[in-house]
């Protein structure tokens, strides 16, 4: 039986090399593309006619739109309106990566730290740049709570600074770890089911029941992690736009 980590292996499909750097089309790239196409299909096809009374698929597209639009409005306010397309794309990219990854034999690109950290690092840099562009020197006020006694700066500034700098790490590791661990558990339980014989022996039924339950849990985790990733981005954006 293959190792539980085998599912995370990146396999080239079309080897490409550019200036000595390997940028092959891999299973990861393939599933990114599939997720993007699926997300596009979900968001574009049902609203072609723009029916006044939405059908099921149009209601789904509209729900996605409204969930993220409300999230941006509630967490960032009207100033966040310009960043809505980015936040929306981020949500769809992570959500479809997580959910499609749960289908057996697919690949979960969000289980790779390279992907999640790239996203988190971009968000971190962009949010910092927006904050500095908007507030200039006053952006540093983010590291010292307004109204705290001056002498507490010695403690508070390092704490705030470290917590700020650890944002991209926590943001990316949370998603990567959740996806990786979930898939490992599914794989291990699946291995028990096969080795104990789910279909002809009683002992295999136990891991089978567990597998069903954990699969349901993982569907929930896939959605929730996409939601958390997106809402934290909104919160960081809000900090940069409005300080605190």
């Amino acid at each position: 039986m293959a190792s539980p980590l085998h599912q995370f292996e990146i396999q080239p499909i079309v080897p490409i090399e550019l200036g000595g750097i390997d940028i092959s089309i891999t299973n990861s790239a393939l599933w990114m593309a599939i997720a993007a196409v699926t997300a596009t299909a979900v968001m574009v096809l049902p609203v072609r006619r723009g029916a006044l009374i939405p059908g099921r698929w149009q209601a789904l597209s509209e729900s996605f739109y409204e969930i993220i639009a409300n999230m941006v409005r509630d967490n960032v306010g009207t100033a966040g309106r310009r960043y809505f397309p980015f936040v929306f794309t981020l949500f769809m990219f992570v959500l479809f990566g997580n959910v499609l990854g749960l289908i057996p034999y697919t690949f979960t690109y969000t289980s790779h730290i390279a992907v999640t950290f790239s996203l988190a690092a971009f968000i971190f840099l962009a949010v910092t740049a927006i904050g500095i562009a908007k507030h200039g020197f006053r952006f540093l006020g983010l590291f010292f709570p307004h109204g705290a006694p001056a002498w507490t700066a010695v403690i508070l500034i390092p704490i705030e600074l470290i917590s700020y700098l650890s944002r991209p790490v926590s943001l990316s590791v949370r998603l990567f770890a959740n996806m990786t661990v979930g898939h490992v558990i599914l794989k291990v339980l699946g291995g028990f089911v096969v080795s104990l014989g789910a279909f002809y022996a009683i002992p295999g039924l136990l891991p089978m029941a567990g597998l069903v339950a954990v699969t349901a849990l993982e569907v929930m985790v896939a959605v929730i992690q996409a939601y958390i990733f997106t809402i934290l981005t909104c919160i960081y954006l809000n900090d940069a736009l409005h300080l605190h």
Binding site: I23, S28, A29, F93, H112, A114, V115
Partner: peptide, 10 residues
Amino acid sequence: SQIFWLLVVF
């Protein structure tokens, strides 16, 4: 490769 295709697709 991952970062490159992430950038392209995103």
